[in-house]
Computed example of a mutant assay.
Amino acid sequence: MTVSTFEVHRGRGAFNAAFFGVLGPYIDRSVRRHKQRVYADLPSTVVEIGAGVGANLRYLAPGTTLIAIEPNRPMHGRLAAAAGRRGVRLDLRERVAERTGLPGGSADAVISSLVLCTVADPGEVLAEVRRILRPGGTFRFVEHVAAPDGTLTRGLQRALRRPWAWTFEGCSCERDLAAQVRGAGFSRVDVRAYRLHSPFVPFNTQIAGIAYA
């Protein structure tokens, strides 16, 4: 396992591991049909940036090798246990998504969910994803994004910006991630916007898609 430069906050790191461990199934039910579409037919080895506690393991076939890029150490125990239950071979890397340490052109598929909202620089992460994907490889993503200007949801995202980011380790509700993925240099990007109806209103405007290297 490689040492990461990510600094785990003693309280928030453990809180987020517990939060997503408990509420992960509820969140997954909300976005399942979108994940089923973009995570269909994944190859036998998959790279996941921000693997967390293993919310996406259910979309991997038993026997799949998951190279999990996850710098938050409190997530690791739950992730490893979930991979064991699902029959997924876990290759856990304690690194940040900006610097995976993987060889260029080595990945057939990279996946993420609710990760690009949290990283310090989504553009740098997307450049790293492009670097490690082989030609023809895919980046499959499910992310939450900024609501349209002038909407009630957008106002709530602005009002809750600071407490939301503090609680969820830097998570931003105000990024136009569709534009960032489209502008990241992929050969083709297919993305759909949709809205959830959940109590977590700042989180309810989302996108799901596939970008092709």
Rank of each mutant, 00 (worst) to 15 (best):
P71A: 00
P71C: 03
N72I: 00
R73Y: 00
M75K: 02
M75T: 01
M75Y: 08
M75N: 11
H76G: 09
G77M: 06
R78M: 13
R78C: 01
A81D: 13
A81I: 06
G84Y: 02
R86Q: 15
R86C: 15
G87M: 13
G87P: 14
V88Y: 14
R89I: 03
L90I: 02
D91P: 04
L92C: 05
R93D: 06
R93V: 04
R93G: 02
E94T: 12
E94N: 13
R95W: 01
V96C: 14
A97M: 05
A97K: 05
A97T: 03
A97R: 03
E98Y: 03
R99C: 12
R99P: 06
T100E: 09
G101S: 10
L102D: 05
L102E: 07
G105M: 10
S106T: 04
A107Q: 13
A107F: 06
A107G: 01
D108T: 15
A109C: 15
A109F: 10
V110P: 03
V110T: 07
V110F: 04
S112N: 12
S112Y: 05
S112M: 12
L114Y: 13
C117G: 06
T118H: 03
T118R: 06
P122C: 05
G123K: 06
G123N: 14
E124T: 11
V125M: 11
L126Y: 11
L126G: 09
A127F: 12
A127D: 11
A127P: 08
E128H: 09
V129S: 10
V129W: 13
I132R: 07
L133Q: 04
R134D: 01
P135G: 04
T138C: 07
T138E: 13
T138M: 08
F139S: 09
F139C: 09
F139M: 12
F139G: 09
F139I: 08
R140P: 02
F141D: 05
F141M: 07
F141W: 10
V142F: 08
H144Q: 05
H144N: 07
V145G: 00
V145C: 12
V145Y: 02
A147E: 00
A147T: 01
P148L: 08
D149F: 07
D149T: 08
D149I: 07
T151P: 10
T151L: 12
T151K: 13
L152V: 13
T153I: 12
T153Y: 02
R154T: 03
G155C: 14
G155I: 14
G155N: 14
L156G: 02
R158H: 07
R161E: 12
R162K: 11
R162N: 07
P163R: 11
W164N: 02
W164I: 05
W166D: 08
T167D: 02
T167Q: 03
T167K: 06
F168S: 04
F168L: 15
F168H: 04
E169P: 04
C171L: 06
S172I: 09
E174I: 08
E174D: 14
E174R: 14
R175K: 09
R175I: 02
D176A: 01
D176G: 00
L177H: 01
A178G: 11
A179E: 13
A179L: 12
A179R: 15
Q180M: 14
Q180T: 10
Q180V: 09
R182I: 00
A184T: 11
G185Q: 08
F186W: 11
F186P: 01
S187K: 15
R188A: 15
V189K: 14
D190R: 15
V191L: 10
V191D: 00
A193N: 14
A193Q: 15
